[in-house]
Structures are given as C-alpha cells and as structure tokens.
C-alpha cells in the first residue's frame, strides 16, 4: 500500500500519465462539438418550445420582417437601390442585419440565462455563445436560401457571384459573433451594457449600410460610413448579389482585420469574465 505524497508540491509519482496535449486538444474539440450540438437543440427547445410552429417561427420572423420592409420599399421605389428589385435589395440587406442585431441583443442575457449550465464542466461560456449565434446564423441563412431560390425560380434572377456572397455572410456572422462575445462579457460585468446595447443596435441601423447602397451617397459620406466594418460587409454582400448593377465599395482586408480583432477581444473577454461570474 502506498501513501500518497502531496507534500513536495509536484505531482505524486503514481499519478497516471497524462495524455499528450495534442490528444487532449483533439478530444476537447470533439467534446466541444458535442456540447455545442446539445446546446443548439436545447436553445431551440427553450426558445420555441417543442411545437413545430415554434421551429418555423425562427425562419418566419426575419423572413416576414424583411418581406414587409421589402414590399414597402417596392411601393415607394426609392432611388438608393439602383435598378435592382427592391424586394431582393431589402432582403439581402435586412436579413443579415437581423441576424447581427439578434446576436448582439441576445448576447446581453446569454450568461445570466444559462448560469445553471455552468454546473457542467464541459459547457464553457464560449459554447453557449457559439450555439446561440449558430442558431441565428442558420436561421438567416435559411431565409436567404429560401428567398434566393424562390426568386431564382420565379424571376430567373440569381446571385451574380455566390462565393463572394457566402464569404461576406460568413464575415458578417464572424463579426457579429466577436461583437456578441464582447457584449456578453461586458453585460456580465457591468449592468449598463445591457441597457445601452439595445438602443445602440437601432441607432446603428442607418450607419450599417444595410438598407441603402453606398454608391448613392456623396463621396464624403461614403468615406465616413466605410469606417464601419459592417457597411463594408453589406456592400460586399450586395456586390455578390447584384454584381455590376450597383457599384460596391469595400475593403476586404479592413473587414477581416476587424473580424479577427473583435473575435480575439471577445474570446479573451469571455475568458476573463468567467471567474467573475457567480452561480
């Protein structure tokens, strides 16, 4: 029989060999994938109940909102859209913005609402955020696919450059994700964040370039708006959708820089706030 020796501070000699860092990272990724999958399903259930209509509502909500605004705009025939179908213009602009806003707004309560999950070691704060964000992204992607497939079928209008569009959408999601992480961490730390984020997402709408093309703005205003990475992303989305029909203005390097920085800060903030959370 061997008495354990904990005195020296090092590991006792008979501890089982720890598996390699690489193996643990791989195993960790597998667990993380499983957890995010479980959280996704759980998020669906808690948000919409088990009814199938609730599940549908996830797609219907952005689809209806974008559709109504799109129809209104078609009736008004404003000039900021060039010669493209106003309905498509609005859906392509508004649906991603909807996802963005949903991710940011819901981030404020992400941790409070899920503190009970923290009792499971393998559920990390980042997983909760990722699961929620993936849900929003998936919903909006579905909306876009439905709308684009529908219009392609009915009117023979298909996206000009699909890879660009997909890439822009991914950038939008990544940007929203990073910002959402920051907001979630901030809201967990300071209550003010929760209160200012909601109005901010509304104020930000005109500056996001979601509902008008920068081409129809004066050069000076365009330059100012292009400081906003979101405006760049929306321009890129429209570039992928409409191609030459509306000249697009964006700086891909700038956007990627923002996305990377925001995600880095977001992940770091979530890690930092982990210890401060009480449950």
């Amino acid at each position: 029989m061997s008495a354990a020796t904990g005195g020296s501070g090092g590991l006792p000699g008979d501890l089982p060999e720890r598996r390699s860092e690489f193996y643990r990272t791989l195993e960790g990724l597998r667990v993380q994938g499983r957890v995010i999958h479980a959280l996704l399903l759980r998020e669906l259930q808690t948000r919409f109940g088990r009814g199938h209509l609730g599940f549908l509502w996830l797609f219907l909500e952005p689809l209806l909102l974008a559709g109504v605004i799109g129809l209104l705009k078609s009736l008004m025939q404003s000039r900021e859209m060039g010669n493209v179908p106003p309905f498509l213009f609005v859906v392509v602009g508004y649906a991603p913005y909807f996802a963005f806003r949903a991710i940011i707004n819901r981030a404020t309560t992400a941790f409070q609402a899920n503190m009970t999950l923290m009792y499971h070691r393998q559920v990390r704060l980042l997983d909760i955020m990722l699961a929620r964000n993936l849900l929003e992204m998936g919903a909006v992607t579905c909306v876009l696919v439905i709308v684009l497939a529908g219009t392609a079928w009915i009117t023979d209008f298909s996206p000009y450059d699909l890879p660009t569009m997909v890439f822009a959408l991914l950038l939008m999601f990544a940007f929203a994700n990073g910002l959402g992480l920051l907001v979630a961490a901030g809201a967990a730390r300071w209550e003010v964040v929760d209160r200012i984020v909601h109005p901010l997402t509304y104020i930000a709408l005109p500056f996001s370039g979601a509902l008008f093309a920068l081409h129809f703005l004066p050069a000076r205003w365009r330059e100012i708006l292009l400081w906003n990475p979101q405006a760049n992303i929306h321009e890129m989305l429209r570039d992928g959708m409409f191609g030459d029909q509306i000249p697009a203005y964006y700086d891909l390097t700038y956007v990627i820089g923002w996305v990377v920085i925001v995600n880095l800060l977001g992940m770091a903030a979530v890690r930092a706030v982990r210890a401060k959370l009480e449950f």
Binding site: E21, T25, E27, G28, Q32
Partner: peptide, 9 residues
C-alpha cells in the same frame, strides 16, 4: 485550442 482543451479535463 485552450478553450477546446478545457472541455477534455
């Protein structure tokens, strides 16, 4: 990577 590794501990 560190985040993933924490899942395995």
């Amino acid at each position: 990577m560190a985040g993933a590794r924490e899942h395995a501990s």
